[in-house]
Write a protein that binds this DNA or RNA. Structure first.
Length: 367
DNA sequence: CTATGACTCGTGCCCACATCTTGTC
DNA sequence: TGGACAAGATGTGGGCACGAGTCAT
C-alpha cells in the first residue's frame, strides 16, 4: 500500500524535492536535495557530470536524514542520530559492526531497502548494485502519519543538513563534547576515513568480543569514537541523549532481530530514567525544537524501523567467536552435539596446544 | 474450479559444553 | 569496595522434523 505524502510532506519519509510526490530514498550532496529513486535515476543519468554526484541513502529508521553508517548486524543504513539511538540501547547493540556509508556515484540506483548484505559488499567493493524489486518495499515504508510539516523540506539540518534536527538538538544540548566532535565528523565525512570502532577477535569478522586491551589503544579507540559522535565505552550509561528519547523504546536492535520482542512495558523496565546531566524529554519542560518533529515522532519512527527489521532476514550474528570455534570442533551425531570420548578430548587437547603455539589464537579450550 | 499428492522451502528444535553472567561471601 | 568462588544461564552449528507454500494432475 502506497502511503500518501499529502500537503507537502508528512512526518515520516521525506518526500522527493523534485517530484514532491514520492518518498526520497537518497540524498544528493551536490544538489543538496532529497530524491526518490526515480528522480535520482533520471537526474543523475542526465549527463556525465550529474552522474558523478555523490549520494547517500536516506536513513532507514527516520527516513529523514542521510544515512551515515551501515550496521551489518541490523542490516540497516542509519543516520548518525538513529545510529546513536539504536546502538546505545545496550552493550550488545554497541558492539554492532558499523561502517561509514560510502557515497553512491554513477547512475546505478538501489533503493534503501536493498538487502544490506549486498550493499555492504558493494560498499567494500566500491560498487553498487541495482535492485529495482525492492522499490516496492521502500515505497511501502512511506508511512501513513501525515502531520503538518510543510516547512520541513530543507530546513531540518544541522551541520550541513545531514542529521535529523531534533535528535541533534538534543544531542548537542546534552553533550557539548559530542557536539564538538560531531562537527569534526561532519567536516571529515567526505573523506570516508572513519575509524568505526571494531574490536577484532582473533581476526574473526563477527561481532567482536571485548577483551582486555592496552590502555593506550583504548584511549585511542575512545578518541575515535568521540570523533564519530559515538560512544562505545561500556562503562558509560549510554549515549548522552539516548535515555531521553528511548527510555520506552530503547532495546537492542540485535535483540529485536534475534529474540522475540518484548513489550513496551518490559522495555521501559529495562531502561531506566536517564542519568544526571541528560535531558529527559518526557518529564522536563519542552525543549526548543522544531514543532514538526516531536520526540514521539522519532520514537514512533524507531519503533517502525524495528518492526521492519523483524520482517527482514538476518544472517546469523555470532556474538562469541570462541563458542563458534568450539561448536565447529565438537563431535556430532545427526547434527546434534555428542559427548566427547576421552580419546577425542586428548586429541583435541593436543591439537589445541599446537594451534595456540603456532597462532596464538587464544580461543581454544583447555579441558 | 476444486481436491489431492508430490515436492520445495523455511523455521525451529535438539544436543554438549565452554564461556558468560549473576549472586553470595 | 573489590576479589574469589559457585551456580545457573547462554550461545554455538549441523541435521532433522514439520508446517506452509507451490505445482502438476
Amino acid at each position: 500500500m502506497m502511503k500518501e505524502n499529502t500537503g507537502g510532506g508528512n512526518n515520516w519519509a521525506r518526500i522527493c524535492d523534485t517530484c514532491r510526490s514520492a518518498a526520497s530514498t537518497v540524498y544528493c550532496r551536490a544538489d543538496s536535495a532529497y530524491l526518490c529513486s526515480g528522480c535520482d535515476s533520471r537526474i543523475h543519468a542526465a549527463n556525465r557530470l550529474a552522474s558523478r554526484h555523490e549520494r547517500v541513502w536516506v536513513c532507514e529508521a527516520c527516513e529523514r536524514a542521510p544515512a551515515a553508517f551501515i550496521c551489518k548486524a541490523d542490516a540497516a543504513s542509519l543516520c548518525t542520530a538513529c545510529d546513536a539511538d539504536i546502538h546505545s540501547a545496550n552493550p550488545l547493540a554497541r558492539r554492532h559492526h558499523r561502517v561509514p556509508i560510502l557515497p553512491i556515484s554513477g547512475t546505478s540506483h538501489a533503493p534503501p531497502a536493498t538487502k544490506l548484505e549486498d550493499r555492504f559488499l558493494a560498499q567494500e567493493d566500491g560498487d553498487e548494485t541495482i535492485d529495482e524489486e525492492d522499490e516496492d518495499e521502500a515505497a511501502s515504508w512511506l508511512l501513513l502519519n501525515p502531520v503538518k510539516n510543510n516547512n520541513n523540506q530543507n530546513n531540518g539540518f544541522l551541520f550541513g543538513g545531514e542529521v535529523d534536527e531534533y535528535l541533534d538538538f538534543v544531542e548537542y544540548n546534552s553533550c557539548p563534547e559530542q557536539n564538538q566532535f560531531s562537527d569534526q565528523y561532519n567536516h571529515h565525512q567526505h573523506q570516508q576515513n572513519y575509524g568505526v570502532p571494531q574490536k577484532s577477535y582473533g581476526g574473526d569478522s563477527v561481532v567482536p568480543v571485548q577483551c582486555g586491551e592496552a590502555k593506550g589503544q583504548v584511549q585511542h579507540q575512545k578518541h575515535q569514537d568521540f570523533q564519530l559522535g559515538l560512544d562505545f565505552e561500556p562503562s558509560k550509561a549510554a549515549y548522552s541523549y539516548h535515555s531521553s528519547i528511548s527510555h520506552r523504546v530503547s532495546v537492542s536492535s540485535m535483540d529485536v532481530g534475534v529474540v522475540p520482542e518484548s513489550s513496551l512495558s518490559d522495555i521501559s523496565i529495562s531502561h531506566p530514567r536517564p542519568p544526571k546531566g541528560t535531558i529527559d524529554l518526557f518529564s522536563g519542560p519542552p525543549l526548543q525544537m522544531p514543532p514538526q518533529l516531536a520526540p514521539l515522532d522519532r520514537e514512533a519512527r524507531v519503533l517502525r524501523y524495528r518492526e521492519k527489521k523483524k520482517t527482514r532476514k538476518f544472517e546469523k550474528t555470532i556474538r562469541y567467536a570462541s563458542r563458534k570455534a568450539y561448536a565447529e570442533t565438537r563431535p556430532r551425531i545427526k547434527g546434534r552435539f555428542a559427548k566427547r570420548t576421552d580419546i577425542e578430548v586428548e586429541v583435541d587437547q593436543m591439537f589445541s596446544t599446537t594451534l595456540m603455539a603456532e597462532t596464538g589464537y587464544g580461543i581454544v579450550p583447555s579441558f
